[in-house]
Write a protein that binds this DNA or RNA. Sequence first.
DNA 1: TTCTTCATGTAATTAGTTACATGATTGA
DNA 2: TCAATCATGTAACTAATTACATGAAGAA
Lengths: 216, 216
Amino acid sequence: MSTADDRPTGPRLTTTSYAILGLLAVRSSSSYELTRQMGRGLGRIWPRAASKLYEEPKKLAALGLARAREGSVGERRRTVYSITPKGRRTLAAWLAEPGAGPVLESEQLVKLFFADHGTTRDALATIAAARAWAEERNEDNVRVGRAYLGGEGEFQERVATNMVVGAFLTELYRTVAEWADWAEQVVGRWPEDPRGATLDREAMEWVVDRAGWSVR
Amino acid sequence: MSTADDRPTGPRLTTTSYAILGLLAVRSSSSYELTRQMGRGLGRIWPRAASKLYEEPKKLAALGLARAREGSVGERRRTVYSITPKGRRTLAAWLAEPGAGPVLESEQLVKLFFADHGTTRDALATIAAARAWAEERNEDNVRVGRAYLGGEGEFQERVATNMVVGAFLTELYRTVAEWADWAEQVVGRWPEDPRGATLDREAMEWVVDRAGWSVR
DNA sequence: TTCTTCATGTAATTAGTTACATGATTGA
DNA sequence: TCAATCATGTAACTAATTACATGAAGAA
């Protein structure tokens, strides 16, 4: 009856589908438990609204990649999803494919991009907000890292993989903070009206020079 | 008749709306010209499909923030959009507001997050892809930077602002590349089956230590 | 025992993408 | 003169968000 083919025929799987499949591969969960996992880890690299985590597992179940066990808490329904063997194979196949590069969206950078249509004060405030963001995120990250080091992380068996991603975030936050410090210096030398800002040639050369790392 | 209030009453403006409003503040453009601008700059920090750039300016025009001039090229219609004074005020007001922190989405990092459900080879390939991505993006960035330095950039009057954003991207690409080099070392020491990977305590301490920059 | 937070979900809406269609321009 | 690429736009679709509703559990 089956063609022994693990490629799903129904609705196409998105990265979000695979992300949730991955969470289920770690442990069976209700949608609410998935939102917790999103909060402490995955959400930093693949942020999604909670409602997605109620909708998406249904799709996985419909495709035979997960199984839904209906239960209840008092009068309420409660559904726990588990990955199936087919789901594990599908996840493994996906992991072997290339994967798209990072996508960055930054409203703050958009504001800085158009800073010459506002005031220098606005730009400095935006830069300060970016630095504060980096510091806040980093502290979270450190908390989780220290917990793992102390043997208190929730999934000790996953610490090796978690560390690789954690290291990336650490470096990202540090980079944002260091850039913000630099940008504060540069923009701090602008006149009140940014349209009067002249090219800081030295800073520009420094940037182009730093960027030279990959160019032969 | 008017309440002399610049807050728009119709459809809410999104960051994408303001991004396009900003582009129009720099110069009047057709939708196609907007796609070019997206390609060389803004798209790196606020990526959007071309079709958005045909749809969104209509909304701006409906709100009185932009004006649409209908023209033609041969038989075809061609619409050029310009910002209005009200549009400039609205843009300036937006620039004075805080702005959301960066949002990162990385399919590659998601794959690494679940690397223990695939092979070590898969993980190394993903890391290599991330490095290649950083290198490629950086070369683009350098090209643009050098052009500005040589006085060839298209909007010399905007070089001061562009540089602040360009510097961020430079540092981001460099960070990705350096992280990839580090990750390659760490994952290279894993056994074939990543589930057998034990915590590289030294690497973990290094990460936590690096992350210590903002913690007192 | 009442208030708040945790937990479980659905419905309505929207922002965004992919796919398509076709005329204009350039250059081999 | 024909093919490729540039340029201009619409239509269909979907992934994702926001808003809403409400029961359960714990705390004051």
